[in-house]
Computed example of a mutant assay.
Amino acid sequence: MAKNKFHDGAGPSQRQLRVGELIRRTLSDVLMQGDVHDVELNAMSITVSEVRMSPDLKIATAFVLPLGGGQRPEAIQALARNKGELRRQITKQMSLKYAPDLRFLIDESFDKMDETRALLQSDAVRRDLDDDDDD
C-alpha cells in the first residue's frame, strides 16, 4: 500500500525547509533592491520572516510584515498585485524545476511575542514567580 505523504504528523521535510529558506532569502533580496516596478511596493519596507512550502513544492506561503507593523492590508494587496513579477524574479535567481505560486499572509508571531511578554510582566505572574523564589 502506498504511503500517504500529505499528512500533518511528521512536519515539513528537509527539502521543503531548504527551498522555503532559499525563497525567503531571494524574496527578501528582490523586495529590498526594489526590482519590482511598483512605486507603492517599493516605498514599503517589508520583512519576510518565513516561507512555508507545500509538500509538492508548488505553493510558497510567505509570512510578511511591513516595517513598524502598519499598512498591513496595503502591503498584502501590493504583494498580491505584483505576485507574477515577484515569481518571475525569484525564478530568474533560483534554479527550481517549477516556479512556485506565491501566497502572502501577515506574520502574527511578533504580536504573539508582545502578548506573551506583557503577560509575563503582569502583576499576577510576577507574584507567582516571587512566591517560588521564597522556597
Rank of each mutant, 00 (worst) to 15 (best):
M1K: 07
A2R: 11
N4C: 04
N4K: 13
N4V: 11
K5Y: 12
K5E: 12
K5S: 10
F6H: 15
H7Y: 03
D8C: 02
G9R: 14
G9E: 13
G9D: 11
G9W: 13
S13W: 00
Q14V: 09
R15Y: 01
R15A: 01
Q16V: 04
L17F: 11
L17E: 05
R18S: 15
R18E: 15
V19L: 09
V19H: 05
V19F: 07
E21N: 14
I23Y: 02
I23Q: 01
R24V: 01
R25F: 07
T26S: 14
L27W: 09
S28Y: 04
S28A: 12
V30P: 03
L31K: 08
M32R: 09
M32L: 13
Q33H: 05
G34F: 01
D38F: 10
E40L: 06
N42Q: 13
S45W: 04
I46K: 04
T47V: 12
E50P: 01
V51Y: 14
V51D: 12
R52S: 10
R52I: 05
M53F: 05
M53W: 05
L57W: 11
I59S: 07
A60E: 06
T61K: 13
T61G: 06
T61D: 02
V64K: 15
L65I: 00
P66M: 03
L67I: 00
G69S: 11
R72T: 10
R72V: 15
P73K: 12
A75V: 08
A75N: 07
I76K: 08
Q77P: 00
Q77I: 04
Q77D: 14
A78L: 07
A78Y: 06
A78T: 01
L79E: 06
L79T: 00
L79K: 04
A80V: 10
R81L: 14
R81T: 03
K83G: 03
G84N: 09
G84K: 09
E85F: 10
L86W: 05
R88L: 06
Q89T: 00
I90Y: 06
K92F: 09
Q93W: 01
L96Y: 05
L96S: 04
K97S: 03
K97L: 06
Y98S: 08
A99Y: 07
A99L: 06
P100V: 05
D101L: 05
D101H: 11
L102M: 07
F104N: 02
L105T: 01
L105W: 04
E108L: 08
S109T: 15
M113R: 13
M113K: 10
D114P: 02
E115T: 04
T116D: 03
T116I: 13
L119N: 05
S122N: 08
S122A: 02
D123L: 01
V125G: 03
R126G: 00
R126N: 02
D131I: 08
D133Q: 12
D133W: 09
D134Y: 10
